[in-house]
Design a protein around this nucleic acid. Structure first.
Lengths: 215, 215
DNA sequence: GTGCTTTCGTTAGAAGTTATAACCAAGCTG
DNA sequence: CAGCTTGGTTATAACTTCTAACGAAAGCAC
Protein backbone atom coordinates (compact mmCIF):
# COMPACT_ATOMS: atom_id res chain seq x y z
CA UNK A 1 0.00 0.00 0.00
CA UNK A 2 2.91 2.40 0.60
CA UNK A 3 4.72 2.76 -2.70
CA UNK A 4 5.33 6.49 -2.13
CA UNK A 5 9.08 6.11 -2.42
CA UNK A 6 10.51 9.63 -2.63
CA UNK A 7 10.31 10.85 -6.21
CA UNK A 8 9.18 14.08 -7.69
CA UNK A 9 6.29 15.76 -5.88
CA UNK A 10 4.31 15.18 -9.05
CA UNK A 11 4.72 11.45 -8.83
CA UNK A 12 4.00 11.52 -5.14
CA UNK A 13 0.69 13.23 -5.79
CA UNK A 14 -0.09 10.80 -8.56
CA UNK A 15 0.61 7.79 -6.36
CA UNK A 16 -1.53 9.23 -3.62
CA UNK A 17 -4.50 9.79 -5.92
CA UNK A 18 -4.12 6.31 -7.35
CA UNK A 19 -4.21 4.92 -3.82
CA UNK A 20 -7.27 6.98 -3.01
CA UNK A 21 -9.03 5.69 -6.10
CA UNK A 22 -8.30 2.13 -5.08
CA UNK A 23 -9.56 2.90 -1.58
CA UNK A 24 -12.87 4.11 -3.04
CA UNK A 25 -13.02 1.13 -5.36
CA UNK A 26 -12.62 -1.28 -2.44
CA UNK A 27 -15.45 0.43 -0.58
CA UNK A 28 -17.68 0.08 -3.59
CA UNK A 29 -16.68 -3.53 -4.17
CA UNK A 30 -17.28 -4.40 -0.53
CA UNK A 31 -20.88 -3.25 -0.76
CA UNK A 32 -21.97 -4.13 -4.29
CA UNK A 33 -19.43 -6.65 -5.58
CA UNK A 34 -16.75 -6.36 -8.20
CA UNK A 35 -18.93 -6.61 -11.28
CA UNK A 36 -20.96 -3.60 -10.12
CA UNK A 37 -17.89 -1.38 -9.84
CA UNK A 38 -18.48 1.98 -11.52
CA UNK A 39 -15.70 4.40 -12.44
CA UNK A 40 -18.18 7.25 -12.54
CA UNK A 41 -19.36 6.57 -8.99
CA UNK A 42 -15.77 6.48 -7.76
CA UNK A 43 -15.02 9.79 -9.45
CA UNK A 44 -18.11 11.42 -8.01
CA UNK A 45 -17.33 10.21 -4.50
CA UNK A 46 -13.86 11.72 -4.84
CA UNK A 47 -15.18 15.09 -6.00
CA UNK A 48 -13.74 14.64 -9.45
CA UNK A 49 -15.92 14.30 -12.47
CA UNK A 50 -15.92 11.36 -14.81
CA UNK A 51 -13.03 10.99 -17.23
CA UNK A 52 -10.46 12.35 -14.78
CA UNK A 53 -9.87 8.80 -13.64
CA UNK A 54 -8.45 7.90 -17.03
CA UNK A 55 -5.37 9.95 -16.18
CA UNK A 56 -4.68 7.35 -13.50
CA UNK A 57 -6.05 4.11 -14.88
CA UNK A 58 -6.43 3.21 -18.52
CA UNK A 59 -9.85 1.75 -17.85
CA UNK A 60 -12.02 -0.44 -15.71
CA UNK A 61 -10.00 -3.54 -16.49
CA UNK A 62 -6.69 -2.02 -15.43
CA UNK A 63 -8.20 -0.87 -12.15
CA UNK A 64 -9.62 -4.32 -11.47
CA UNK A 65 -6.31 -5.90 -12.36
CA UNK A 66 -4.60 -3.63 -9.85
CA UNK A 67 -7.19 -4.52 -7.21
CA UNK A 68 -6.78 -8.23 -7.86
CA UNK A 69 -3.04 -7.83 -7.44
CA UNK A 70 -3.52 -5.95 -4.18
CA UNK A 71 -5.87 -8.64 -2.93
CA UNK A 72 -3.36 -11.39 -3.67
CA UNK A 73 -0.60 -9.37 -2.01
CA UNK A 74 -2.82 -8.73 1.01
CA UNK A 75 -3.50 -12.43 1.45
CA UNK A 76 0.16 -13.28 1.04
CA UNK A 77 1.08 -10.59 3.58
CA UNK A 78 -1.46 -11.95 6.04
CA UNK A 79 -0.10 -15.48 5.72
CA UNK A 80 3.64 -14.77 5.48
CA UNK A 81 4.38 -14.02 9.17
CA UNK A 82 2.60 -17.21 10.14
CA UNK A 83 4.43 -19.20 7.53
CA UNK A 84 7.80 -17.77 8.55
CA UNK A 85 7.06 -18.61 12.17
CA UNK A 86 6.61 -22.19 11.07
CA UNK A 87 2.88 -22.21 11.59
CA UNK A 88 1.11 -25.41 10.70
CA UNK A 89 -1.83 -26.22 8.54
CA UNK A 90 -4.37 -25.31 11.19
CA UNK A 91 -3.14 -21.80 11.91
CA UNK A 92 -2.77 -21.06 8.22
CA UNK A 93 -6.26 -22.28 7.43
CA UNK A 94 -7.87 -20.14 10.10
CA UNK A 95 -5.83 -17.16 8.99
CA UNK A 96 -7.20 -17.61 5.48
CA UNK A 97 -10.71 -17.75 6.86
CA UNK A 98 -10.16 -14.65 8.97
CA UNK A 99 -8.78 -12.78 5.99
CA UNK A 100 -11.72 -13.84 3.84
CA UNK A 101 -14.37 -12.91 6.39
CA UNK A 102 -12.76 -9.51 6.93
CA UNK A 103 -13.78 -8.59 3.39
CA UNK A 104 -15.80 -11.28 1.62
CA UNK A 105 -15.85 -9.50 -1.73
CA UNK A 106 -12.07 -9.31 -1.71
CA UNK A 107 -11.87 -13.09 -1.42
CA UNK A 108 -14.53 -13.59 -4.07
CA UNK A 109 -12.72 -11.16 -6.36
CA UNK A 110 -9.72 -13.44 -6.62
CA UNK A 111 -11.15 -16.90 -5.97
CA UNK A 112 -14.74 -16.46 -7.10
CA UNK A 113 -16.27 -16.37 -10.54
CA UNK A 114 -13.88 -14.42 -12.74
CA UNK A 115 -15.04 -11.03 -14.05
CA UNK A 116 -15.99 -11.26 -17.75
CA UNK A 117 -13.36 -9.19 -19.53
CA UNK A 118 -10.40 -9.44 -17.22
CA UNK A 119 -7.40 -11.76 -17.68
CA UNK A 120 -4.74 -12.18 -15.01
CA UNK A 121 -1.32 -10.70 -15.85
CA UNK A 122 1.89 -12.61 -15.24
CA UNK A 123 2.96 -10.88 -12.05
CA UNK A 124 -0.10 -12.34 -10.36
CA UNK A 125 1.17 -15.86 -10.84
CA UNK A 126 4.31 -15.23 -8.81
CA UNK A 127 2.29 -14.04 -5.80
CA UNK A 128 -0.14 -16.87 -6.29
CA UNK A 129 2.73 -19.33 -6.25
CA UNK A 130 4.12 -17.69 -3.11
CA UNK A 131 0.81 -18.44 -1.41
CA UNK A 132 0.89 -21.96 -2.75
CA UNK A 133 4.42 -22.28 -1.41
CA UNK A 134 3.27 -21.37 2.08
CA UNK A 135 0.49 -23.94 1.84
CA UNK A 136 3.04 -26.53 0.78
CA UNK A 137 5.29 -25.63 3.71
CA UNK A 138 2.42 -26.02 6.13
CA UNK A 139 1.50 -29.38 4.65
CA UNK A 140 5.04 -30.68 4.59
CA UNK A 141 5.31 -31.25 8.30
CA UNK A 142 2.26 -33.45 8.80
CA UNK A 143 2.55 -36.31 6.36
CA UNK A 144 -0.63 -38.31 5.90
CA UNK A 145 1.19 -41.54 4.96
CA UNK A 146 -1.68 -42.97 2.94
CA UNK A 147 -1.20 -45.34 0.02
CA UNK A 148 -0.04 -43.60 -3.14
CA UNK A 149 -3.25 -42.90 -4.96
CA UNK A 150 -3.30 -42.66 -8.76
CA UNK A 151 -3.56 -38.91 -8.27
CA UNK A 152 -0.21 -38.77 -6.46
CA UNK A 153 1.42 -40.73 -9.24
CA UNK A 154 0.00 -38.17 -11.65
CA UNK A 155 1.17 -35.28 -9.50
CA UNK A 156 4.70 -36.67 -9.42
CA UNK A 157 4.82 -36.04 -13.15
CA UNK A 158 2.88 -32.76 -13.13
CA UNK A 159 4.43 -30.70 -10.37
CA UNK A 160 5.26 -27.57 -12.34
CA UNK A 161 2.82 -25.51 -10.28
CA UNK A 162 4.86 -26.22 -7.13
CA UNK A 163 7.84 -24.39 -8.60
CA UNK A 164 11.10 -25.49 -7.00
CA UNK A 165 9.44 -26.68 -3.83
CA UNK A 166 10.90 -30.04 -2.83
CA UNK A 167 7.64 -31.54 -1.64
CA UNK A 168 6.93 -35.20 -2.27
CA UNK A 169 3.77 -36.04 -4.24
CA UNK A 170 1.86 -36.84 -1.05
CA UNK A 171 2.45 -33.29 0.18
CA UNK A 172 1.44 -31.85 -3.17
CA UNK A 173 -1.77 -33.80 -2.89
CA UNK A 174 -2.27 -32.63 0.67
CA UNK A 175 -1.81 -28.97 -0.26
CA UNK A 176 -4.25 -29.28 -3.14
CA UNK A 177 -6.80 -30.92 -0.88
CA UNK A 178 -6.27 -28.25 1.77
CA UNK A 179 -6.83 -25.53 -0.76
CA UNK A 180 -9.94 -26.98 -2.39
CA UNK A 181 -11.62 -28.01 0.86
CA UNK A 182 -11.12 -24.65 2.52
CA UNK A 183 -12.31 -22.93 -0.61
CA UNK A 184 -15.33 -25.20 -0.80
CA UNK A 185 -16.60 -24.18 2.62
CA UNK A 186 -15.46 -20.57 2.40
CA UNK A 187 -16.81 -19.74 -1.02
CA UNK A 188 -20.22 -21.23 -0.33
CA UNK A 189 -20.37 -19.35 2.95
CA UNK A 190 -19.26 -16.03 1.48
CA UNK A 191 -21.62 -16.37 -1.48
CA UNK A 192 -24.46 -16.77 1.00
CA UNK A 193 -25.40 -20.35 0.13
CA UNK A 194 -25.49 -21.35 3.80
CA UNK A 195 -27.66 -18.35 4.60
CA UNK A 196 -31.01 -19.96 5.30
CA UNK A 197 -29.63 -23.24 6.56
CA UNK A 198 -29.18 -22.28 10.16
CA UNK A 199 -25.96 -24.07 11.06
CA UNK A 200 -22.63 -22.42 11.86
CA UNK A 201 -20.26 -22.48 8.86
CA UNK A 202 -17.33 -21.87 11.19
CA UNK A 203 -17.87 -25.24 12.84
CA UNK A 204 -17.93 -26.95 9.45
CA UNK A 205 -14.72 -25.16 8.53
CA UNK A 206 -12.92 -26.21 11.70
CA UNK A 207 -14.26 -29.73 11.29
CA UNK A 208 -12.65 -29.87 7.85
CA UNK A 209 -9.37 -28.55 9.26
CA UNK A 210 -9.49 -31.05 12.11
CA UNK A 211 -10.18 -33.86 9.70
CA UNK A 212 -7.17 -32.79 7.67
CA UNK A 213 -5.07 -33.06 10.83
CA UNK A 214 -6.27 -36.60 11.40
CA UNK A 215 -8.38 -35.75 14.42
CA UNK B 1 -38.31 -26.68 -20.84
CA UNK B 2 -41.70 -27.75 -22.24
CA UNK B 3 -44.33 -25.81 -20.38
CA UNK B 4 -46.48 -25.37 -23.50
CA UNK B 5 -49.50 -26.96 -21.89
CA UNK B 6 -52.43 -26.40 -24.24
CA UNK B 7 -53.91 -22.97 -23.66
CA UNK B 8 -54.92 -20.23 -25.98
CA UNK B 9 -52.77 -19.90 -29.09
CA UNK B 10 -51.78 -16.53 -27.67
CA UNK B 11 -50.30 -18.06 -24.56
CA UNK B 12 -48.67 -20.79 -26.60
CA UNK B 13 -46.88 -18.19 -28.68
CA UNK B 14 -45.94 -16.25 -25.60
CA UNK B 15 -44.44 -19.32 -23.95
CA UNK B 16 -42.52 -20.15 -27.08
CA UNK B 17 -41.00 -16.69 -27.34
CA UNK B 18 -40.11 -16.74 -23.64
CA UNK B 19 -38.35 -20.07 -24.20
CA UNK B 20 -36.52 -18.65 -27.22
CA UNK B 21 -35.37 -15.68 -25.18
CA UNK B 22 -34.01 -17.98 -22.50
CA UNK B 23 -32.29 -20.04 -25.17
CA UNK B 24 -30.51 -16.92 -26.45
CA UNK B 25 -29.70 -15.87 -22.92
CA UNK B 26 -28.06 -19.22 -22.19
CA UNK B 27 -25.94 -18.92 -25.32
CA UNK B 28 -24.81 -15.50 -24.26
CA UNK B 29 -24.14 -16.62 -20.69
CA UNK B 30 -22.16 -19.61 -21.86
CA UNK B 31 -19.75 -17.40 -23.75
CA UNK B 32 -19.47 -14.24 -21.67
CA UNK B 33 -20.81 -15.14 -18.24
CA UNK B 34 -23.95 -14.12 -16.45
CA UNK B 35 -22.92 -10.63 -15.43
CA UNK B 36 -22.29 -9.74 -19.08
CA UNK B 37 -25.81 -10.67 -20.14
CA UNK B 38 -27.38 -7.95 -22.28
CA UNK B 39 -31.08 -7.71 -23.03
CA UNK B 40 -30.37 -5.60 -26.07
CA UNK B 41 -28.03 -8.19 -27.55
CA UNK B 42 -30.64 -10.90 -27.02
CA UNK B 43 -33.27 -8.79 -28.73
CA UNK B 44 -31.04 -8.05 -31.68
CA UNK B 45 -30.11 -11.68 -32.11
CA UNK B 46 -33.81 -12.53 -32.19
CA UNK B 47 -34.61 -9.90 -34.80
CA UNK B 48 -36.64 -7.86 -32.35
CA UNK B 49 -35.55 -4.44 -31.28
CA UNK B 50 -34.87 -3.43 -27.71
CA UNK B 51 -37.81 -2.93 -25.40
CA UNK B 52 -39.87 -5.71 -26.96
CA UNK B 53 -38.35 -8.06 -24.40
CA UNK B 54 -40.08 -6.20 -21.62
CA UNK B 55 -43.37 -7.69 -22.80
CA UNK B 56 -41.95 -11.06 -21.75
CA UNK B 57 -39.70 -10.29 -18.81
CA UNK B 58 -40.02 -7.37 -16.43
CA UNK B 59 -36.29 -6.78 -16.54
CA UNK B 60 -32.84 -8.26 -16.38
CA UNK B 61 -33.36 -9.51 -12.85
CA UNK B 62 -36.50 -11.44 -13.67
CA UNK B 63 -34.81 -13.11 -16.63
CA UNK B 64 -31.83 -14.09 -14.50
CA UNK B 65 -34.14 -15.38 -11.79
CA UNK B 66 -35.87 -17.53 -14.39
CA UNK B 67 -32.51 -18.82 -15.65
CA UNK B 68 -31.34 -19.61 -12.13
CA UNK B 69 -34.53 -21.56 -11.57
CA UNK B 70 -34.02 -23.48 -14.82
CA UNK B 71 -30.45 -24.27 -13.86
CA UNK B 72 -31.51 -25.65 -10.47
CA UNK B 73 -34.27 -27.67 -12.12
CA UNK B 74 -31.82 -28.97 -14.72
CA UNK B 75 -29.41 -30.15 -12.04
CA UNK B 76 -32.21 -31.77 -10.07
CA UNK B 77 -33.47 -33.48 -13.25
CA UNK B 78 -29.99 -34.78 -14.00
CA UNK B 79 -29.61 -36.23 -10.52
CA UNK B 80 -33.13 -37.52 -9.90
CA UNK B 81 -33.01 -40.71 -12.03
CA UNK B 82 -29.76 -41.69 -10.35
CA UNK B 83 -31.15 -40.96 -6.93
CA UNK B 84 -34.33 -42.91 -7.61
CA UNK B 85 -32.25 -45.84 -8.82
CA UNK B 86 -30.55 -45.83 -5.45
CA UNK B 87 -27.25 -44.54 -6.78
CA UNK B 88 -24.55 -43.97 -4.22
CA UNK B 89 -22.37 -41.06 -3.39
CA UNK B 90 -19.88 -41.81 -6.14
CA UNK B 91 -22.32 -41.91 -9.04
CA UNK B 92 -24.06 -38.79 -7.81
CA UNK B 93 -20.81 -36.88 -7.46
CA UNK B 94 -19.65 -37.70 -10.95
CA UNK B 95 -23.06 -36.81 -12.32
CA UNK B 96 -22.74 -33.40 -10.71
CA UNK B 97 -19.34 -32.96 -12.28
CA UNK B 98 -20.59 -34.02 -15.66
CA UNK B 99 -23.50 -31.61 -15.44
CA UNK B 100 -21.19 -28.78 -14.40
CA UNK B 101 -18.63 -29.40 -17.16
CA UNK B 102 -21.39 -29.56 -19.76
CA UNK B 103 -22.01 -25.85 -19.17
CA UNK B 104 -19.60 -24.25 -16.70
CA UNK B 105 -21.36 -20.90 -16.62
CA UNK B 106 -24.60 -22.61 -15.68
CA UNK B 107 -22.95 -24.11 -12.61
CA UNK B 108 -21.27 -20.83 -11.74
CA UNK B 109 -24.58 -19.01 -12.14
CA UNK B 110 -26.11 -20.88 -9.23
CA UNK B 111 -23.12 -21.83 -7.09
CA UNK B 112 -20.65 -19.10 -7.96
CA UNK B 113 -20.40 -15.50 -6.86
CA UNK B 114 -23.95 -14.17 -6.76
CA UNK B 115 -24.92 -11.50 -9.30
CA UNK B 116 -25.08 -8.06 -7.63
CA UNK B 117 -28.75 -7.12 -7.72
CA UNK B 118 -30.47 -10.47 -7.74
CA UNK B 119 -32.04 -12.22 -4.76
CA UNK B 120 -33.28 -15.80 -4.89
CA UNK B 121 -37.08 -16.21 -4.69
CA UNK B 122 -38.70 -18.78 -2.44
CA UNK B 123 -39.48 -21.40 -5.07
CA UNK B 124 -35.76 -21.86 -5.56
CA UNK B 125 -35.31 -23.13 -2.04
CA UNK B 126 -37.66 -26.09 -2.61
CA UNK B 127 -35.64 -27.29 -5.62
CA UNK B 128 -32.45 -26.64 -3.73
CA UNK B 129 -33.72 -28.74 -0.85
CA UNK B 130 -34.70 -31.49 -3.29
CA UNK B 131 -31.09 -31.61 -4.43
CA UNK B 132 -29.93 -31.60 -0.83
CA UNK B 133 -32.36 -34.45 -0.16
CA UNK B 134 -30.78 -36.54 -2.90
CA UNK B 135 -27.33 -35.84 -1.46
CA UNK B 136 -28.59 -36.93 1.95
CA UNK B 137 -30.03 -40.14 0.49
CA UNK B 138 -26.73 -40.93 -1.17
CA UNK B 139 -24.84 -40.31 2.06
CA UNK B 140 -27.24 -42.31 4.21
CA UNK B 141 -26.09 -45.69 3.01
CA UNK B 142 -22.39 -45.39 3.73
CA UNK B 143 -22.03 -44.33 7.33
CA UNK B 144 -18.55 -43.16 8.28
CA UNK B 145 -18.92 -44.15 11.98
CA UNK B 146 -16.41 -41.62 13.26
CA UNK B 147 -16.58 -40.12 16.74
CA UNK B 148 -19.29 -37.49 17.11
CA UNK B 149 -17.46 -34.26 16.45
CA UNK B 150 -18.65 -31.00 18.00
CA UNK B 151 -20.02 -30.16 14.57
CA UNK B 152 -22.35 -33.15 14.58
CA UNK B 153 -23.62 -32.19 17.99
CA UNK B 154 -24.32 -28.75 16.58
CA UNK B 155 -26.01 -30.20 13.50
CA UNK B 156 -28.29 -32.33 15.67
CA UNK B 157 -29.77 -29.07 16.92
CA UNK B 158 -29.66 -27.18 13.62
CA UNK B 159 -31.11 -29.55 11.06
CA UNK B 160 -33.82 -27.35 9.63
CA UNK B 161 -32.13 -27.31 6.22
CA UNK B 162 -32.57 -31.09 5.95
CA UNK B 163 -36.35 -30.70 5.98
CA UNK B 164 -38.10 -33.85 7.09
CA UNK B 165 -35.23 -36.09 6.10
CA UNK B 166 -34.61 -38.64 8.88
CA UNK B 167 -30.83 -38.58 8.59
CA UNK B 168 -28.74 -38.85 11.76
CA UNK B 169 -26.28 -36.02 12.43
CA UNK B 170 -23.38 -38.03 11.06
CA UNK B 171 -25.16 -38.24 7.70
CA UNK B 172 -25.97 -34.53 7.77
CA UNK B 173 -22.28 -33.89 8.31
CA UNK B 174 -21.36 -36.26 5.51
CA UNK B 175 -23.70 -34.57 3.04
CA UNK B 176 -22.37 -31.15 3.94
CA UNK B 177 -18.81 -32.36 3.49
CA UNK B 178 -19.70 -34.00 0.19
CA UNK B 179 -21.25 -30.80 -1.07
CA UNK B 180 -18.45 -28.45 0.01
CA UNK B 181 -15.61 -30.70 -1.16
CA UNK B 182 -17.10 -31.28 -4.59
CA UNK B 183 -17.81 -27.60 -4.91
CA UNK B 184 -14.29 -26.76 -3.81
CA UNK B 185 -12.69 -28.69 -6.64
CA UNK B 186 -15.36 -27.93 -9.22
CA UNK B 187 -15.64 -24.20 -8.68
CA UNK B 188 -11.88 -23.66 -8.79
CA UNK B 189 -11.66 -25.75 -11.94
CA UNK B 190 -14.55 -24.01 -13.68
CA UNK B 191 -13.28 -20.58 -12.70
CA UNK B 192 -9.98 -21.45 -14.36
CA UNK B 193 -7.82 -21.39 -11.26
CA UNK B 194 -6.20 -24.70 -12.16
CA UNK B 195 -5.53 -23.46 -15.67
CA UNK B 196 -1.77 -22.99 -15.64
CA UNK B 197 -1.04 -25.69 -13.10
CA UNK B 198 -0.80 -28.59 -15.46
CA UNK B 199 -2.41 -31.37 -13.45
CA UNK B 200 -5.72 -33.05 -14.23
CA UNK B 201 -8.56 -31.69 -12.07
CA UNK B 202 -10.60 -34.79 -12.81
CA UNK B 203 -8.13 -36.94 -10.92
CA UNK B 204 -8.29 -34.62 -7.93
CA UNK B 205 -12.06 -34.78 -8.05
CA UNK B 206 -12.16 -38.58 -8.14
CA UNK B 207 -9.54 -38.70 -5.40
CA UNK B 208 -11.84 -36.62 -3.20
CA UNK B 209 -14.78 -38.89 -3.98
CA UNK B 210 -12.69 -41.98 -3.29
CA UNK B 211 -11.52 -40.52 0.00
CA UNK B 212 -15.13 -39.88 0.95
CA UNK B 213 -15.82 -43.56 0.30
CA UNK B 214 -13.01 -44.57 2.63
CA UNK B 215 -10.75 -45.85 -0.13
C1' DG C 1 10.63 36.24 -11.55
C1' DT C 2 9.40 34.87 -16.72
C1' DG C 3 8.28 31.55 -19.93
C1' DC C 4 7.86 26.71 -21.52
C1' DT C 5 6.21 22.22 -20.91
C1' DT C 6 4.01 18.63 -18.84
C1' DT C 7 0.19 17.16 -16.45
C1' DC C 8 -4.36 17.49 -14.52
C1' DG C 9 -9.26 18.28 -14.58
C1' DT C 10 -12.79 19.91 -16.98
C1' DT C 11 -16.73 19.80 -20.47
C1' DA C 12 -18.52 17.70 -24.86
C1' DG C 13 -19.59 13.79 -27.30
C1' DA C 14 -19.91 8.85 -29.14
C1' DA C 15 -21.54 4.29 -28.39
C1' DG C 16 -23.21 1.28 -25.25
C1' DT C 17 -26.65 -0.40 -21.44
C1' DT C 18 -31.49 -0.87 -18.81
C1' DA C 19 -35.90 0.69 -18.59
C1' DT C 20 -40.32 3.67 -19.43
C1' DA C 21 -43.74 5.99 -22.32
C1' DA C 22 -46.40 6.62 -26.21
C1' DC C 23 -48.12 4.95 -30.35
C1' DC C 24 -49.56 1.68 -34.04
C1' DA C 25 -50.82 -2.57 -35.98
C1' DA C 26 -52.10 -6.68 -35.56
C1' DG C 27 -55.20 -10.70 -33.38
C1' DC C 28 -58.63 -12.67 -30.47
C1' DT C 29 -63.31 -12.10 -28.64
C1' DG C 30 -67.98 -10.51 -27.76
C1' DC D 1 -68.11 -5.95 -37.37
C1' DA D 2 -66.55 -3.35 -33.03
C1' DG D 3 -63.57 -3.26 -29.39
C1' DC D 4 -60.26 -4.68 -26.24
C1' DT D 5 -55.94 -7.06 -25.41
C1' DT D 6 -51.43 -7.89 -26.81
C1' DG D 7 -47.01 -7.44 -29.55
C1' DG D 8 -43.77 -4.59 -31.65
C1' DT D 9 -42.23 -0.33 -32.87
C1' DT D 10 -39.92 4.20 -32.11
C1' DA D 11 -38.59 8.09 -28.87
C1' DT D 12 -36.64 9.37 -24.38
C1' DA D 13 -34.39 9.39 -19.98
C1' DA D 14 -30.74 8.07 -17.07
C1' DC D 15 -27.19 5.39 -16.72
C1' DT D 16 -22.45 3.31 -18.08
C1' DT D 17 -17.35 3.32 -20.25
C1' DC D 18 -14.31 5.73 -22.85
C1' DT D 19 -12.18 9.41 -26.46
C1' DA D 20 -11.33 14.10 -27.77
C1' DA D 21 -10.42 18.74 -27.16
C1' DC D 22 -9.72 22.59 -24.28
C1' DG D 23 -8.26 25.49 -20.14
C1' DA D 24 -5.84 25.94 -16.01
C1' DA D 25 -2.43 24.93 -12.83
C1' DA D 26 1.74 23.17 -11.31
C1' DG D 27 6.76 22.21 -11.93
C1' DC D 28 11.19 23.33 -14.28
C1' DA D 29 14.70 25.95 -16.81
C1' DC D 30 16.69 30.16 -17.44
Amino acid sequence: MAETDAKSPRERYRAQVRAEIKECAWEQIATAGASALSLNAIAKRMGMSGPALYRYYAGRDELITELVGDAYRSLADALRPLSEAGAGLEALAHAVRGWALADPQRYLLIYGTPVPGYHAPDDITVISSQIMGMLLDACAESVPDGPAAPLEEHLAGHRGWAGAHPAPPAVLHRALVLWTRLHGVLSLELAGHFAGMGFDPGLLFTAEVDHLLGR
